[in-house]
Simulated scan of single mutants.
Amino acid sequence: MDPAHESAVVVIDMINTYDHPDAAPLLASVRAVLPSVTRLLERARQRDLPVIYVNDNFGLWRSHHQELLDQALRGPHGDLVEPVRPDDRSLFVVKARHSVFYQTPLDYLLQQYAVRRLVLCGQVTEQCVLYSALDAHIRHYQVAVARDAVAHIHPDLARAALRMMQVNMGADLDDAVAVEL
């Protein structure tokens, strides 16, 4: 991976055990967006762009990212994790809260790779994706959201979140096959 890139794909919370109260409504949405997430990852990897997974740690503070992946793959919804599993070139950042930036080294990592544009995908549109887009915007990153590659719990809130990202943050919204990388 070349150390200087204009764009990076940020995969939010796709390594998931789906062992939480909102899992039931989220699962159908994840299944629907999974093909678009995988297409976006393929496009980024073909261009040798950084693919950065930023993921909750499931409250396992001593875990390594491989342990988190193994736990999610062994879970009852491992079929949703397998298609988007990190490859050997992927980068991985553990987060504890909604934003991919909040108390993580992500900003420093992006600076090291000279990234100025973030293409967001993952879950949950109206929570972690929205808060991450806002934090990217206030840090002066250009933001794009692959709108067919973000899963939601509440469809109405997801539509509103996408509109807020576009109108209030200047985010580019496009489908995974067309989003500018």
Rank of each mutant, 00 (worst) to 15 (best):
D22L: 11
A24C: 04
A24V: 06
P25Y: 00
P25E: 05
L26H: 00
L26K: 00
L26S: 00
L26C: 08
L26Q: 07
L27H: 04
L27T: 00
L27G: 07
A28D: 10
A28Q: 10
A28T: 09
S29Y: 03
S29M: 06
S29L: 00
S29N: 05
R31S: 10
A32M: 09
A32G: 11
A32E: 13
A32V: 07
V33K: 06
V33C: 04
L34M: 10
L34P: 00
P35D: 09
P35F: 06
P35W: 05
P35V: 02
P35C: 07
P35M: 09
P35E: 09
S36A: 15
V37F: 03
T38E: 08
T38F: 03
R39H: 13
R39Y: 06
R39G: 10
L40H: 06
L40R: 00
L40Q: 00
E42P: 09
E42H: 13
E42F: 07
E42K: 14
E42G: 12
E42C: 10
R43D: 12
R45H: 10
R45I: 04
R45V: 01
R45P: 05
Q46N: 15
R47V: 13
R47M: 13
R47F: 11
D48T: 13
D48E: 14
D48C: 13
D48A: 12
L49P: 01
L49W: 02
L49T: 01
P50L: 00
P50K: 05
V51I: 08
V51L: 07
I52T: 03
I52W: 01
I52L: 03
Y53P: 02
Y53Q: 00
Y53A: 04
Y53N: 01
V54W: 04
V54A: 02
V54K: 04
V54S: 03
V54T: 03
V54H: 01
N55S: 04
N55G: 04
D56L: 11
N57W: 07
N57V: 08
N57I: 02
N57T: 10
F58S: 02
F58K: 08
F58I: 10
F58Q: 06
F58P: 07
G59F: 11
L60Q: 13
L60F: 12
W61H: 15
W61A: 14
R62C: 13
R62K: 15
R62F: 15
R62G: 15
R62T: 15
R62A: 15
S63C: 11
S63A: 14
S63V: 08
H64R: 15
H64V: 13
Q66V: 13
Q66I: 14
Q66T: 15
Q66G: 14
E67G: 15
E67M: 14
